[in-house]
């Protein structure tokens, strides 16, 4: 008898380790509907919609922080070319999950201090990650999963910038 696979990402849907349907989560996060239980989980209250729109604004602020930090520190930009793109990808997904939202992003509270752009950026990332993680607790279904994924991704950015 063969052993069950220890799955990697491509085998998550097969057995033991990962029964996750990434496509299903993605669809839910984008506001699509399917079976009744999932419909219930993805039903959104006006308060939840407002909170999700606020997280779009948080992410817009972070994307701007990336722009400022990388403009100020070309070496940092060269060393971490993927991070800003990933932050923008996260923003795109949040905007798709909150269609019609008109968030008012605030600029980062200050400019990166000369020679300290990496530490400054890491602090901005930490603020956004904590905000998304906290917001995920008040959401349900695909919106909670999306915010959780974005928050986890930003924790990875923090580690990369350490």
């Amino acid at each position: 008898m063969s052993s069950p696979p220890l799955p990697g990402p491509r085998t998550f849907s097969r057995r033991t380790l990962l029964a996750v349907s990434a496509a299903g989560l993605a669809a839910a996060a984008a506001g699509c509907t399917s079976s009744p239980p999932e419909d219930e989980r993805n039903a959104v209250t006006s308060e939840q919609a407002d909170e999700l729109a606020a997280q779009v604004a948080v992410q817009e602020t972070l994307v701007r922080a990336y722009e400022l930090a990388l403009e100020a520190d070309p070496a940092l930009a060269a060393a971490t070319p993927e991070l800003a793109d990933q932050a923008r990808e996260q923003l795109d997904r949040l905007q798709a999950a909150a269609p019609g939202s008109t968030p008012e992003a605030t600029p980062p509270p200050d400019l990166p201090p000369p020679g300290q752009g990496q530490a400054w950026l890491r602090a901005q990332v930490a603020v956004a990650a904590t905000s998304h993680a906290t917001a995920a607790l008040a959401q349900t279904g695909g919106r909670a999963a999306l915010l959780g994924s974005v928050a986890a991704g930003l924790r990875g950015h923090e580690a990369r910038l350490a």
């Binding site: 220890l6 990402p9 990962l18 996750v20 839910a28 959780g148």
Partner: peptide, 23 residues
């Protein structure tokens, strides 16, 4: 790979959780 598998599984918990404590 192991950690990525765990992340996916716990994200599923977030997707399906009814209780705030589980989220």
């Amino acid at each position: 790979t192991v950690e990525e598998g765990g992340v996916a599984a716990w994200l599923r918990v977030l997707d399906r959780a009814a209780e705030r404590s589980s989220r």
